[in-house]
C-alpha cells in the first residue's frame, strides 16, 4: 500500500496528495496525521488536493474527519487547491464538507492558518475564526 508523505513546515503540517488513493491509503493518512499533530504540536494542517481529479464521498469523509480530529487536538485544517470540476461534482453529490476551511492554494491556506492563530492569540478581539460573510457584518 502506498503512503502519502506528511511534511512539516514550522508548526504546520503540509500534505500534498499526489496519488489516486485507495481507501486504505486514505485511512492510513488520517491516522498518520493525528499522530504527527500530537508529535510536533502542530497548530495547522494544510491538505493540498490540487492533483486529485476526483473527491468521492470516502475521501470527503476522510477530509471532514481529519478536520474534526485536528480541531480536538487544537490544530486548524485547511483544504487547498480543489479543482473546479471536483467542486462542481461534490456539490452535485450532495457533499458539503461542513466544518472544513478551504483556500485556493497552499500559500493562501498557510496565511489563513496564520491569521486565525493571530485571532486566537488575542491580537484581535473580534469574533474568533471569522467567515468572510461574518467579518462583513461585524465591520
Amino acid at each position: 500500500m502506498e503512503r502519502v508523505p506528511v511534511l512539516k513546515i514550522g508548526d504546520i503540517l503540509l500534505v500534498s496528495i499526489q496519488i489516486d488513493m485507495s481507501d486504505q491509503t486514505a485511512l492510513a493518512l488520517q491516522e498518520d496525521l493525528a499522530e504527527r499533530i500530537v508529535e510536533i504540536g502542530a497548530h495547522g494542517v494544510v491538505i493540498d488536493i490540487t492533483a486529485l481529479d476526483i473527491v468521492d464521498s470516502f475521501v470527503g469523509r476522510m477530509l471532514s474527519t481529519i478536520a474534526s480530529i485536528s480541531k480536538v487536538l487544537d490544530a486548524e485544517t485547511v483544504v487547498v487547491g480543489m479543482r473546479p470540476a471536483v467542486a462542481i461534482t461534490l456539490v452535485e453529490l450532495g457533499l458539503s464538507l461542513n466544518g472544513i476551511r478551504t483556500a485556493l492554494n497552499v500559500e493562501r491556506g498557510m496565511k489563513l492558518i496564520a491569521a486565525s492563530r493571530e485571532n486566537d492569540l488575542g491580537h484581535d478581539e473580534e469574533v474568533k475564526d471569522p467567515e468572510p460573510g461574518q467579518a462583513a457584518t461585524s465591520a
Partner: peptide
Amino acid sequence: LKTVVAARLMGAD
C-alpha cells in the same frame, strides 16, 4: 447557487 457553494469548497467567496 451551486456555483456559490462550489466556489466556497474551493476557498473563494
